[in-house]
Write a protein that binds this DNA or RNA. Structure first.
Length: 260
DNA sequence: ATGACATATGAGATATGA
């Protein structure tokens, strides 16, 4: 079973790219982020024609998350618990039946948090604490669980071509990295790190500006965190970096895992 | 270099992203 995460940076602007990639990669479940459209404007039928079920949690202009899946979604949750006043569409979760039981998958668009010293960075850290609390509850189910998405966190210096360039950025703050580790330390496995160790150059995002792609000036911020039951099924994890060579690409590329 | 690029909104310039 192939499960992927991809920040598309507008699903309407990226529809042709997404369809081409789905036909080529043939994932079973795909977590999308930064839809930048409301649910009614999501191009649902285009994906249904490829055999996918579609669930979305969108909003106008910004944010927005979705899950495309060959299996039927069940037990759908829209929005991250812990703050009824949070109206930003950054979390959707569903369970899927598979041989021998259920697998639960979440699509996550974690707040960017820039610039430092503002409400935006506070919101990022509060959102991460809510994610940690919810993840802790989900682990009690003792199911295969995949928390996939754009975490907007560079976990370690090895996850950036030029880590020194990110020292003043919310994505690489000690608080952001510590919060990410506190979630991992609940018992999750970082799929790319598990399969590739400390291999350098494994990036998922390259800025549009200043020839970042051509210089491979990237960062690894899109992650799939696996519960112990999911980690036991892990066969492969890869970054589809060739997607960045598409015409009018997203600034992120898909990350794909294969589970037994 | 409070920039570069890209996208949404809306119809020019601003907000947001990472």
């Amino acid at each position: 079973m192939k499960i992927a995460t991809w920040n598309v940076n507008s699903i309407k602007a990226r529809l042709d790219n997404a369809i081409a990639w789905l036909k080529d990669a043939a994932p079973d479940i795909v977590c999308l982020q930064e839809l930048k459209c409301e649910d009614a404007a999501f191009p649902t039928s285009a994906f249904e024609e490829l055999g996918y079920n579609v669930i979305t949690h969108g909003q106008k202009s910004y944010n927005g998350v979705a899950i495309l899946s060959k299996p039927q979604p069940e037990d759908v949750r829209r929005g991250l618990p812990g703050d009824d006043d949070d109206s930003q569409a950054r979390y959707i979760e569903a369970a899927f039946s598979r041989k021998g039981g259920v697998i639960r998958v979440a699509s996550i668009y974690l707040p960017n948090g820039n610039p430092l010293g503002t409400e935006k960075f506070d919101y990022k850290l509060r959102w991460m604490e809510r994610l940690r609390a919810h993840a802790k509850q989900l682990l009690k189910l003792e199911e295969p669980l995949v928390l996939a998405g754009d975490y907007n966190v560079i976990p370690a210096p090895n996850d950036a071509k030029n880590p020194e360039a990110w020292t003043g950025d919310a994505l690489f703050q000690p608080e952001s990295r510590a919060s990410f580790r506190s979630i991992v330390h609940l018992g999750f496995t970082d799929a790319i790190r598990q399969m590739h160790g400390d291999a350098p150059g494994l990036y998922t995002f390259w800025d549009y500006q200043a020839g970042a792609w051509q210089r491979n000036n990237g960062i690894r911020i899109d992650h799939l965190l696996l519960s112990p039951q999911a980690a036991d099924l892990l066969k492969d994890a890869r970054i589809d970096r060739e997607v960045r060579t598409q015409e009018r690409p997203s600034d992120h590329v898909p990350v794909v895992i294969e589970l037994a």
